[in-house]
Amino acid sequence: MATQASQLISITPGSTEPIYRQLVEQVRRLVAGGQMAPGDELPSVRELASSLAVNPMTVSKAYGLLEAEGLLARRRGLGMLVAERPRAKAGSSSQAERSALLRPTLERAAREARELELDPDTVLTLFTHILKEQS
């Protein structure tokens, strides 16, 4: 499963967002969106750093932050795994967690729409169209 996870994770080198933050956000999204489930193994620090061509310390920092927030768990001899989450918490806040993950992306899109001087109705129509296209 770690190989599959490494294929789902990518970075944007020219982004203003630091690479470790990109990794943290992507793992959060993969877990919140159900592409990674509790118990799924993540690639080792070395494996992911090599596949993304980044410093292993960058991956280690991202994994450490995710472990500190309880999203990942370190298991001796197995590496990092998606942590088990209490059912009540996962069931009740799953929608809120996913919405919170989407908010920064929508804020950037809204800022860009304002810069392009697009009216809200046009933007919402376009967004609705894109959502339906991808389904």
Rank of each mutant, 00 (worst) to 15 (best):
L72I: 03
A113Q: 09
A83E: 07
L118I: 09
V82Y: 08
E41T: 13
T122M: 05
K132S: 12
Q7G: 08
P56M: 10
T12M: 03
G34Y: 05
G14P: 11
L116S: 10
A100R: 03
L72N: 02
L72W: 01
A110H: 13
V123G: 07
V24D: 00
R114L: 13
V123A: 12
P13V: 15
G91H: 11
E115F: 11
L106F: 11
T12E: 14
M36L: 13
A2L: 05
Y20S: 13
L71K: 04
Q134T: 14
M36F: 02
Y63D: 11
R46S: 14
A73M: 08
E67Y: 04
G34K: 01
P86I: 13
L71A: 11
A49M: 09
E41D: 00
V123I: 01
A62N: 07
I19H: 04
A68D: 12
R74E: 05
V54Y: 04
L131Q: 10
E115D: 14
T105I: 06
E69I: 08
Q134D: 03
S50K: 08
Q95N: 05
A2Y: 06
S6T: 06
S44L: 06
I130Y: 10
E17F: 03
G77I: 08
G64R: 12
I130P: 00
L101P: 01
R87W: 05
T105A: 12
T58L: 03
L71G: 09
P18F: 14
T58I: 12
A5H: 14
E133P: 00
H129A: 04
T125N: 05
R29I: 09
R76W: 08
M80V: 05
K132W: 15
L126V: 12
F127T: 07
L23Y: 07
A5L: 12
I9L: 07
D40R: 15
L30S: 04
A32D: 02
K132I: 14
Q35R: 15
A110Q: 09
R74D: 04
S50D: 14
R29D: 12
Q35W: 07
I11V: 14
A53P: 01
E107H: 11
T3D: 01
L42D: 00
A90H: 01
R76V: 13
E107Y: 05
A96C: 01
I130M: 09
K61H: 01
E25R: 02
L106E: 01
L30Y: 08
R29Q: 10
V27Y: 11
L101A: 04
R114C: 11
